[in-house]
Amino acid sequence: MTVATKPLFGVVIFPGSNCERDTVHVIKNVIGAPVREIWHKDSSLDGVDAVVLPGGFSYGDYLRCGAIARFSPIIETVIEFARSGGIVIGICNGFQILLESGLLPGALIGNASRKFICRNVYVRVERNNIPATDGIEKGEILEIPIAHHDGNYICDAKTMAELEANGRIVLRYCDENGDVTPASNPNGSMGNIAGICNAEGNVFGLMPHPERCAETLLGNTDGRRFFESLCSR
């Protein structure tokens, strides 16, 4: 595959983002896809094929994680892009921004343990017919690091029923054998949810950090799978 056939990624940078460099590095140097950095004050996505909202602490997590970033000028454009079928991936703080913007349902509140958790976890891939996971087998177990204080997914019963019924739960925290158990739930998330998508599957938010485990040098390449999936289309 030549570089030209790979999608053009756009990584949005907010004041307080801190995973954008890793994300850009993985897309550019590991995956070999073209990537553009987009400042949050821009209002144009300038022809990108896929948008990544990276992790970090946009606006210092003031008020609520992602609450202020959601009103950055670029987000209105991202919402339009998503509604017209554009691929949008939110990682960690990016997931929080997707929830605050209403592109995904529910909210992320403080971890049940009250602690910031930074360690590898296992997730089971529950759905693989969306752009971000279609190169991964359903049921595959991936090891990916999490690093968050507010990753405890919550939503009302009606939303949860809808997520379950329509296969919108993409990733669940599990143990190394793939069993979804209370003990393998690091943060108290309902249904062990680590990642969900919208009804169409083009918007995907996840708490784990795939950009932090995409290179052999770092001892784990599981995270590369999501980026490869996005490039396989």
């Binding site: 008020l63 609450a67 009103f71 929830l99 605050e100 349902p105 909210a107 919550i154 009302d156």
Partner: peptide
Amino acid sequence: KLLSNPVT
């Protein structure tokens, strides 16, 4: 719009 999140 901003100060509270109706979900929580």
